[in-house]
Design a protein around this nucleic acid. Structure first.
Lengths: 221, 221
DNA sequence: TGCAAAATGTTGCAAGTGCAACATTTTATT
DNA sequence: AATAAAATGTTGCACTTGCAACATTTTGCA
């Protein structure tokens, strides 16, 4: 995975941080950092730790919109949405730097290799993020719980080239990610187990079925 | 909306096209361009026309993954997914150029302003695309047809700052976009009409309800 | 180590939705 | 203008799923 400051030496990283009006945040576990973010259209970069960007609906339903681990970025853009409440939660003690997107894009003064490199890194990260979003969209367009689970298994399994899936989060959060009721998901997982499709041991799920044999190269947007 | 070659003069556009191994495609209405794309990890740019990137499931369900209008980009990355069939369809006569992503990122030779500008443009387009995907994810995490419709209305209405929504596609495609059964959607739209929430005239939907009054600035990732 | 909180497991039931099957209207195309 | 094709509208029904309300287990922290 590309990181934001890959192939840039520390001295030049410092220069970039100055130019892009960096703000540094240290956020404690289980606290919100929404109120600490001042300014519009920022790019956040998680140095260490782990964030969840969530939305709480008027009916209280919590949805994980994005999970940001080490070395990943997120964009804060203050939009004129009108309902729902968003929040950014640190699930661990987390260090973040905030860069001003406008100044990244608008800067005309520097014409240096390291700025080039930085732009390329940011582009790569953003494209990777788009791909992740596509995966989630593919899952969410499935109409049944079973198909969402199978799609999730398929994507995860293919990504690691293995029939063993190690859930990166707990089952409660998996249900959120798949946007289904946790209890109904548990029910369906039991069905899949009983029908011999999968095996579950803790957070390890083993796929017992053969993969679909379509060998067509596929397009990911 | 930022375009790929914004602020770059035609001579330099030509240079960029050469360096990035451009391939030009002219695709006729209602034909697939999947077979015309050779190579992995390309960035497609629609000069004129209109594309749909779709997925057809094993059970025949068609899902629109992305709609690419004029001046928009898409990424083709041949992934080792194992099931489902993807396709790119030209819905109109469409002109496309294909750029090699690797050579865009890896190029070390040119250190020109226009390359800078090109990278910035591509970054802006990609970030915009991520935001669009987030919107769709927000919609798809809604559990009922009614809530998906209302979320879609809310996002669209806010985007244009108006209570009038002009559907950019027909109702069949809207159902695909929302990943719900078209008939069930029609039923729910009728309910919303009868309950006085909306009015529909052709492709224009008028929102008759007041917006939620949450004035919190919201985060979009 | 002990306790509270979070996560997980289970199940009945009502409600929402996908599906099928069809009628009708609108839009293309020659 | 005629005809085919696509889009839209309608409805009954079976089935999936969300929800509520629990019990049980695991985790985290003082």
């Amino acid at each position: 995975m590309t990181k934001l400051f890959d192939s840039i030496n520390p001295r030049n990283i410092e220069k970039l941080e100055k130019i892009f009006e960096t703000q540094t945040l240290h956020v404690k576990k289980n606290t919100s950092l929404l109120k600490s973010i001042h300014g519009d259209n920022l790019i956040g970069y998680v140095m260490s730790g782990y964030l969840e960007i969530i939305k709480i609906d008027s009916n209280g339903t919590k949805t994980i919109l994005e999970e940001i681990y080490d070395e990943d970025t997120f964009n804060t853009s203050l939009l004129l949405f009108n309902h729902g409440e968003y929040d950014i939660l640190a699930k661990e003690n987390t260090d973040i730097i905030l860069l001003d997107y406008e100044s990244i894009i608008k800067t005309r003064e520097i014409n240096k290799d390291y700025y080039f490199q930085f732009l390329k890194n940011l582009l790569e990260i953003t494209i990777a993020k788009t791909k992740e979003k596509n995966e989630r969209i593919e899952i969410l367009t499935k109409k049944t719980i079973r198909n969402r689970l199978l799609e999730y298994f398929s994507i995860t399994s293919n990504k690691h080239g293995s029939k063993f899936i190690y859930l990166p989060f707990n089952f409660t959060d998996l249900a959120d990610y798949l946007a289904i009721d946790r209890c109904a998901m548990t029910r369906e997982l039991k069905n899949l187990k009983e029908e011999g499709f999968i095996e579950i041991k803790g957070k390890r799920i083993t796929l017992l079925y053969e993969k679909y044999s379509s060998s067509d190269p596929l397009i990911n947007i």
